[in-house]
Design a protein around this nucleic acid. Structure first.
Lengths: 245, 245
DNA sequence: CGGGCAATTGAAACTGCTCAACCGCCGTGG
DNA sequence: CCACGGCGGTTGAGCAGTTTCAATTGCCCG
């Protein structure tokens, strides 16, 4: 299995751990982000526990009812957490980007599944091993803690968005969020399609299209398929005004 | 101050800790629930860190922008976490009942405030002290961990509710949740008013009233102000069908 | 008994959804 | 090489569910 192969490469040393990923673990490589603790934790503790996994577009990472033993650290690509009904309704919990981490607790222990939105490379870590690591290496524990806090903040923000924002506010909010997370100075290459956006924002795909069209007509953005260019960030912020009040 | 007085009482020993609350820490006392670790942790570690606080109806516990140093363990009563806009829109994050715990991270570090829905008694613990306690006493750490997992599950359930459920589904869902949490065998004495319910479910107060009225007309429930009696739980479960699919 | 507040009900307005058609791109196969 | 089909995205028209606005009821408490 490739898993076995990956482990052997990684256990050979810190350098091999990097080479096992196929590229150097340099945060400056566009789109790739490795855990900060990969730099501060001692390699002999770190290396035996990681595997690298690759996922194709739309590939399932964790089944909806799944409670995996592994935590996943996204190195590149984009993942959605998703819950689907038999009647077709679907809710996306969050989009996870390079640098994000998730495990069974973060997807609600069987509430949500996880799927690759775009081709994704992830560090795959047994939860128990990660916990042991965190117990020995303070910098790991700190980073995990920070992730948990950030996730709760973002999830609470989603409650406000889904509970009390209008369609146009949600869309503006989404663009600002994506601009900050993918942040290439006003040009966003969205990894997800309109259906994913709609299921993330609790809207229909048509409403998302119309909302984007309104922003385009106002000169706030330009739309070229999945590439959104932001001309007038203030207009977006006005559109999501409620968020800040 | 009563704080000082409370501390002195509590530091006197385990028995005084109980008496400081005014009543024995017996889980069987109706409506009162103390942390399980109050039984397993050694008293000399536990006692110096706790204070008891009482809050009147509608009293603010944590300001919306507040990041308190304390964690709160609700012994009796009901608390809402709430975010409010200047334009009047309001979203309730969750209702916290006896036995529930929250701290600054659970309310999003300044995202939500906390207010007493009904007269509330809470154990108030400095976060750093609780963390130290958890580091020394495994049973405390386990209980805190379980709370965090439960909270994430419930918050993710709220995402689905707010994003993809109809008004009647939300209302049925709410009644089932409250029945399970307040659970007196089919009779629910809701501590919160209709406005709170509406802001919890992302609806208006009128829609909540109408939804309840429909359930009453179908013979599923009876309504007497804040007292709801459930006659036909299956009808409620049908009304929230999407939730389970 | 009256004031005030929460809850309820009714009617109209509106936001967002549903259904449908259409566009443009791209890969495939004749 | 081009026709075709599929898919994602966009736009339009009508509809439905929810909100808004308004009026009324019921209850508690002074």
């Amino acid at each position: 299995m490739e898993d076995r192969h990956g482990i052997q490469e990684m256990t050979a040393g810190y350098g091999r751990f990097e080479s096992a990923t196929g590229r150097p673990a340099d945060p400056s490589v566009p789109g790739e982000r490795f855990p900060a603790f990969a730099r501060c934790a001692s390699p002999d503790l770190l290396l035996p526990v990681f595997r690298i996994r690759q996922y194709r577009r739309q590939e399932e990472i964790v089944a909806q009812e799944g409670v995996p033993d592994f935590a996943f650290w996204i190195v590149s690509g984009c993942v959605r957490t998703v819950r689907q009904w038999r009647d077709g309704r679907r809710q996306i919990g969050e989009f996870l980007m390079a640098g994000d981490l998730f495990d069974r607790d973060d997807i609600g222990r069987g509430r949500f599944g996880a799927e690759a939105v775009s081709p994704t490379r992830a560090l795959c870590v047994r939860v128990s091993a990660l916990q042991e690591l965190a117990a020995r290496q303070p910098c790991v524990a700190i980073e995990l803690r920070q992730h948990a806090v950030d996730r709760m903040r973002r999830t609470l923000d989603r409650l406000i968005l889904l509970g009390r924002m209008t369609a146009s506010e949600r869309i503006a909010c989404f663009l600002i969020e994506m601009n900050e997370r993918l942040g290439a100075e006003g040009t966003i290459d969205l990894p997800m399609n309109r259906t994913d956006i709609a299921d993330y924002l609790g809207l229909t795909i048509e409403t998302v299209c119309r909302g984007l069209a309104v922003l385009r007509q106002r000169g706030a953005i330009a739309i070229d398929r999945s590439r959104i260019t932001i001309f007038d960030r203030c207009a977006l912020e006005r559109a999501e005004r409620g968020y800040l009040n």
